[in-house]
Design a protein around this nucleic acid. Structure first.
Lengths: 245, 245
DNA sequence: CGGCTGGTTGACGAATCTCAATTTCGGTGG
DNA sequence: CCACCGAAATTGAGATTCGTCAACCAGCCG
């Protein structure tokens, strides 16, 4: 139960449970639905690693419930979260990832897994599927670029603000309300700041009436404009609007 | 000639020049070579925007010479470089990019451009091409993730170190030698730090004998290990090797 | 020569990191 | 049901790094 997860074989759901989740699978009219037949339903515990299928050369996953992170350890021991997967996200898990690990971070995490070879074979024959895969890739790329914008932010408040907005866009219970699927520690590693700074940023935004906490894991966005504009205050006398004299 | 480029139509090379560059095009035994027939050779000036073809719904590009950046302006006016393209890189340029701009940043920048529709059509029929496109996407994704690791670095020295190593891996004249294709300002925007900090980081690494400058645009890596290990010094008493008690 | 862009260095203030202490929360066992 | 434990979350204090402002140097071009 430490941060470094023990490597445990994910339990396959029982027949009954598998069918239950299989029904939640095909939520969109995607050509990818054709793959459902070769899908394996996996139910993982917190901190359990995903790529546990030595037979395959990687696999595509569709997250049904919970949350998954892709992370990498730096030489100095810090962990950097490279990607955060939420329900209804597709993602690829390669098996040759050296230092990269993909693991579940929410308590019941359920996902469907498709062997890469099968996907490739099917894509060879199915144009629509092939096109959707290409679209998916560009989506993934865009999401990663969004994260670049977050990490490139100057102040912690700015980073957190963008993070909350991005999260709301991806997984909003209701408009203006964000359910945090992960701990502050994960947020810190995602934003590449210390946990304490995350807390302070949250407190700061709260005290200025930009957000409001409901419990510790749910956040209401009160002033969206302020969040978008680097948290509402201009740090260190930076002059907005100019990029070149 | 300010930082904000004027929008100029890229000059198409003359027949002669086009043929010259076309010969430099197909350097690898890729199925993508089959696209060369529908390629347009573009020669761009510094700070010239790339997506200048309103007829298409985006296009793939192959960079032959020079350098290209994809960037986005923040609400506070700073520019974030999302991607740095070097010779022999493929990249996609979408036309609907709102705030994203793609522009040449080296003096003669030459690239081949393939209309997206044509690529898609061809990929429908050509399995090998389709597979290569998928491989290309995952390569782009990996490169973007590398950049995430760079941006997530704590100190400026660390960021710069990773940047130099990544650059060396991608475009090494010789082993241990890196030609900087861009200005300090571009590096700063890529690393999301101020120009001054970039200079100071370079000076710092130089004084500690980890790198050596040859002119201002060429860098020799003297101590690769030190670069990999967060610049060789442990900042603020961080203890390496541990991520969880 | 004068102007301009790119590059470098110094000083000061702001923001973050680390260490440390404290509080809250959830679950577990008596 | 309640006490207790550990993990998560929060807050404070001192140290460090980075951003801004400012000055200065080096090529380059007209």
């Amino acid at each position: 139960m430490t941060c470094l997860p023990e490597k445990v074989t994910p339990m396959k759901g029982t027949m009954h449970a598998a069918d239950h989740y299989r029904r939640m699978l095909s939520v969109e009219p995607h050509a990818l639905r054709r793959l459902d037949g070769s899908a394996t339903i996996l139910k993982c515990h917190r901190d359990q690693e995903i790529p546990d299928r030595p037979e395959t050369a990687g696999h595509w996953c569709y997250l049904i419930a919970g949350a998954v992170r892709r992370s990498k350890i730096r030489p100095d021991g810090r962990r950097q979260i490279l990607e955060l997967m939420l329900p209804r996200d597709f993602f690829f898990v390669s098996d040759d990832q050296r230092e990269e690990t993909v693991e579940a971070i929410a308590e019941p995490t359920v996902l469907a897994s498709y062997p890469a070879e099968r996907v490739d074979l099917l894509a060879d024959r199915d144009r629509e599927l092939a096109r959707e895969l290409r679209g998916l890739s560009s989506q993934l790329l865009r999401r990663t670029r969004d994260q670049l914008m977050i990490l490139g932010g100057v102040t912690a408040v700015e980073k957190l603000g963008w993070f909350l907005l991005a999260l709301e866009k991806r997984a909003s219970d209701q408009k203006g309300q964000v359910e945090l699927p992960i701990t502050r520690y994960d947020i810190a590693e995602y934003l590449s700041v210390s946990v304490e700074t995350v807390c302070r940023a949250i407190t700061d935004l709260q005290q200025r009436g930009i957000i409001a906490l409901v419990g510790t894991r749910k956040i209401k966005i009160l002033d969206r404009t302020a969040l978008e504009e680097h948290g509402g205050k201009t740090p260190q006398g930076r002059k907005p609007g100019l990029i070149a004299a």
